[in-house]
Design a protein around this nucleic acid. Structure first.
Lengths: 203, 203
DNA sequence: ATTATAAGTTGCACTAAGTGCATAAATTAA
DNA sequence: TTAATTTATGCACTTAGTGCAACTTATAAT
């Protein structure tokens, strides 16, 4: 529940203490990422991460509550910008279209290399795969909350729940289709558009 | 991936060895369930489960590959019957309606007590919650495969993927709504029906 | 500046999950 | 009965994660 603090942008009033804490957290996440990519998730121990980040093993646990929490750190960082975008959209646009546009725009920022690297990492461990699925569920909740911020009519809440569910689902299926295509020639964004299109036509 | 063997019904040709293995697996699952309900998930060690089931700790791992795999055992047992039902439906019915009917029928078999017990168990541990989410993703895949068995036209596969995603999602949201209602007066099945209804109307 | 107070860091000991390996016991096949 | 193959178990080991107490560093108060 009390997940990762999503790496807030440097708030005007940030005490030196908070700054150092944020930097250390970042440093640990970066160290872990390097090691994960080099040796895989299972092949990287907390001792190694702590050493690479220049802290003690025990201190690690005052920054992340578990090993796989590090993964969420990165995802939180970039999904935060997605929700920020969404908050800026007008309530006149249909929610599903708004989400689609924001997601497409968001996914286009990543190169194929970045995406495959993350993807391979995720697939390197059963535990991470599991965690990724749980992450989607969590994002569905966050997306729903964000949608409620923009489209505030209480009578639409049920619909917004469906929109959130269906959008995260479309995203998941799109990424899956993108991953499974041989050669990865089509960009992920186009799979995402297709997924939203079939949502409308097939239901 | 290579998950639990879903507790196959006694196949005509079952060697004594296979029978004993199946029974032991069952016994472990039952022992674990008793202990989980009594002491919570985290409060139950593998040593305790092994003792309760009358096997050694080491032997446990030749029946389940991890502690939380035990949970999947039960879910697999009862979801198997759902898919069996689905396989018996006619390809003339729209897939989404077929899934809804089968799911509703399936959920009606459980009493409120059974459902709340399982639900409380799931919520007793972060790890189980995570596992449950991952389980939904797995079920989505199984449902999709089953749908493909019934509606065999290749050109419908994309639609069936959506149907699977949306159905599991509706189920999830329905159970969530059911859980969150105060007092649990309305049965879960009616939430499920509502969820499928809003799917069609809200999209 | 000095001291009190709180926050952050670390080591140590401990629990519990999970794996590899070698050996013993039990089944099935010959 | 004996040989071969599974299955069960004990043992040692690794790793994640937690509680606690000592120590160090930063912030606040006098």
């Amino acid at each position: 529940m009390s997940a990762n603090t999503p790496a807030v942008k440097p708030v005007p009033t940030e005490s030196p203490r908070e700054r150092k804490r944020r930097e250390t957290r970042q440093r640990i996440a970066e160290a872990a990422q390097r090691l994960f990519l080099a040796n895989g998730y299972e092949g990287t121990t907390l001792d190694a991460i702590a050493a690479e980040a220049g802290i003690s093993r025990r201190t690690f646990f005052s920054y992340f509550k578990s090993k796989d929490d590090i993964i969420l750190f990165w995802r939180d960082v970039d999904s935060a910008s997605l929700y920020a975008d969404l908050l800026r959209t007008s309530p006149d646009v249909p929610p599903l279209d708004a989400v689609r546009d924001v997601m497409v725009k968001h996914i286009e920022r990543y190169t194929t290399e970045q995406m495959t690297a993350v993807d391979n990492l995720m697939r390197s461990s059963e535990a991470l795969l599991t965690r990724k699925q749980a992450y989607y569920a969590q994002q569905e909740q966050v997306l729903f909350d964000t949608l409620c911020e923009v489209w505030r009519q209480p009578e639409r809440r049920a619909a917004l729940r469906m929109v959130a569910m269906v959008s995260i689902g479309a995203m998941r299926l799109a990424l899956q289709a993108w991953r499974e295509q041989s050669g990865q020639r089509k960009p992920a964004a186009s799979f995402l558009r297709d997924a939203f299109d079939s949502l409308k036509s097939e239901l």
